[in-house]
């Protein structure tokens, strides 16, 4: 029996097709970022501005992937999503501590930017969520 995904009204999440938009945005802004770094000398815009715009775009794309509904968004998927968010948040916190400790030990300032932290958290969420879903599908 075919299941109508529109029946599941989980508020605050975007329709499933936003995953594809998110992936497209990530690819587009990664290319923008990389090309900006490669052709740095031939363009007049500052390298930092290109990097910031590129990373902002990647974050936006990853966020769209994270907050888009699954094809069948039911209560168990919602639970998996919550678990993945929790793990990603814990990982992000551990990352901050790791950077601080490394900085103290090595006496060398490592970059801890908001961009890097958010990208790591979003990637960890996607990783955990997809792994959980694959485990379910293998059952």
């Amino acid at each position: 029996m075919k299941i109508d995904p529109d029946k599941y009204k989980y508020r605050g999440f975007l329709p499933n097709y936003f995953i594809k938009i998110g992936i497209a945005l990530v690819i587009l802004f990664v290319l923008f970022f990389v090309s900006g770094m490669i052709f740095e000398k031939s363009i007049t815009v500052e390298k930092e501005i290109i990097a910031t715009i590129g990373l902002d775009g990647v974050i936006l794309g990853l966020l769209l992937i994270c907050i888009s509904k699954n094809k069948i968004e039911d209560e168990m998927i919602h639970m998996l999503r919550l678990q993945a968010f929790t793990r990603a948040f814990i990982f992000g916190t551990a990352y901050v501590f790791a950077v601080t400790i490394t900085t103290l030990i090595m006496n060398d300032e490592l970059p801890l930017t908001p961009h890097s932290l958010i990208i790591i958290e979003l990637l960890m969420f996607i990783f955990h969520f997809e792994i959980s879903k694959r485990k379910l599908n293998k059952q």
Binding site: M1, I3, I72, D74, E75, M76, I77, L136, Q139
Partner: peptide
């Protein structure tokens, strides 16, 4: 499982997980 899942508006995997006491 697919039929039951359709009747109660969840995925087949959810029914499978409930049956196996994972959820």
């Amino acid at each position: 499982q697919e039929r039951l899942a359709g009747l109660v508006d969840v995925s087949r995997q959810t029914i499978n997980s409930i049956e196996k006491n994972r959820y």
